[in-house]
């Protein structure tokens, strides 16, 4: 049973195919996810990592489930902040469901550790990223505050 968990939901006027691409395609994520991109073979069991623009690995883990345009589950361990890295692996789930002219994206980030610092940290970042992702898909431009990796982090 997960001891630290949050569930975020956002409705985006787009198609499951476009949203799926926006979640994993480096060209897309660089635009709304603070210039970062992910590296993976995108199949169950494959390693996965987020690259920070200066070349560091931001987070890493393994793909647990990969069902294109519907469901992606992966483990997620922070790699650049020691106090977060020492907590080990969390679990991130994306679920996509078409609803009318929109897609409902449900994001669950969870960890066994009670009062996890990692879950607390990512829970503050996700609303910005999800809003920016929505704005990018609906208007063609991301929110300005998520377009650059923050200085000194």
């Amino acid at each position: 049973m997960a001891a630290s968990r949050f569930v975020y939901v956002i409705y985006i006027r787009t198609t499951p195919a476009r949203l799926w691409q926006a979640l994993i395609d480096p060209e897309f994520t660089r635009r709304y996810w603070a210039q970062t991109w992910q590296e993976s073979e995108w199949k169950p069991g494959a390693p996965w990592r987020i690259m920070i623009p200066d070349g560091r690995v931001g987070d890493s883990g393994e793909i647990l489930e990969f069902v294109p345009e519907r469901r992606l589950v992966l483990t997620w361990k922070n790699e650049f902040k020691p106090e977060l890295a020492e907590e080990g692996h969390s679990r991130l789930t994306y679920e996509l469901e078409p609803e009318g002219e929109s897609v409902k994206l449900t994001l669950t980030h969870e960890m066994e550790t009670p009062k996890s610092k990692l879950i607390d940290a990512v829970s503050q970042g996700w609303p910005h990223l999800l809003s920016s992702l929505k704005t990018l898909l609906e208007t063609g431009e991301p929110l300005i505050e998520t377009t650059r990796w923050p200085e000194g982090v």
Partner: peptide, 9 residues
């Protein structure tokens, strides 16, 4: 679960 995304928007 609290979903703060609409408030953020």
């Amino acid at each position: 679960f609290l979903n703060p995304v609409p408030i953020h928007q």
